[in-house]
């Protein structure tokens, strides 16, 4: 039998595609912000800050489309839940973008000073949160609850790394007051990555809601 609301469902698919495009830009921003830190690349940091405007535009555009579809198409059931979830999910993506941009600002503060310690854990943490983001969006697209739960569970590792980085930096700062300024910036960067992980967990929770109609706290 044929589908009776094809053009509406096509629009819904487009909305999802736009959201995924936004997600991939956001993911790149996270990677670039840490790359800028490790390579002391202020220009790359500037690009992350500029790209945040693009991300903000995506959010507004997708939100507007969600509102329009609700007003004009009166979606119900899974369609309604999907639109509600997309409109919330783009806020998470936008916040992730803000965090990447915050990292870039800190990178610019640090400038070309040498790092006060080896920071290999930050790129490691970045890899985890970028993958978390990508896979949380995959779980959303495939409405895969198990995957969503699994991705959310990985947030523990991110929180752990954040704590560990903090205490190592504190150690360095305690021994040498001159490192406090940069040390604080690095602590913030670690915290921004940790926040990004929280937003990916939100995306996983919203995916569970979309599929089941019930909100649950994951982690």
């Amino acid at each position: 039998m044929e589908e009776s609301r094809k053009s509406f469902h096509d629009e819904l698919k487009n909305l999802e595609k736009e959201m995924l495009k936004m997600g991939s830009i956001v993911g790149e921003s996270i990677s670039k912000s840490i790359e800028a830190l490790m390579k002391k690349d202020v220009k790359l940091a500037d690009q992350v800050i500029r790209d945040d405007d693009i991300i903000d535009d995506y959010e507004l555009d997708i939100e507007e489309n969600c509102t329009r579809l609700i007003a004009l198409q009166q979606p119900v059931a899974i369609d309604l839940r999907k639109i509600i979830v997309i409109s919330k999910l783009v806020t998470d993506l936008e916040r992730i973008g803000d965090n990447a941009s915050n990292i870039a600002h800190r990178v610019k503060d640090i400038g070309d000073q040498p790092l006060i310690k080896e920071m290999q854990d930050l790129p490691g943490m970045k890899d985890i949160v970028v993958q978390q983001l990508r896979e949380s969006l995959e779980a959303f697209v495939n409405m895969d609850i198990e995957k969503a739960k699994e991705v959310a569970a990985r947030d523990k590792k991110v929180n752990q790394l954040d704590k560990q980085i903090n205490s190592e930096l504190l150690n360095v700062m305690e021994n040498d007051c001159a490192t406090i300024e940069q040390g604080t910036s690095l602590m913030f960067i670690s915290r921004f990555l940790e926040r990004i992980g929280d937003h990916s967990t939100n995306i996983c929770e919203r995916t569970v809601y979309m599929k089941t109609g019930e909100w649950t706290e994951l982690e």
Partner: peptide, 19 residues
């Protein structure tokens, strides 16, 4: 029924995916 119906046929009908 309109937020989260139990039966797939209900969902397909109310969302216009009937078939």
């Amino acid at each position: 029924i309109f937020e989260n119906p139990d039966d797939q046929r209900t969902e397909d009908y109310i969302t216009g995916r009937f078939g």
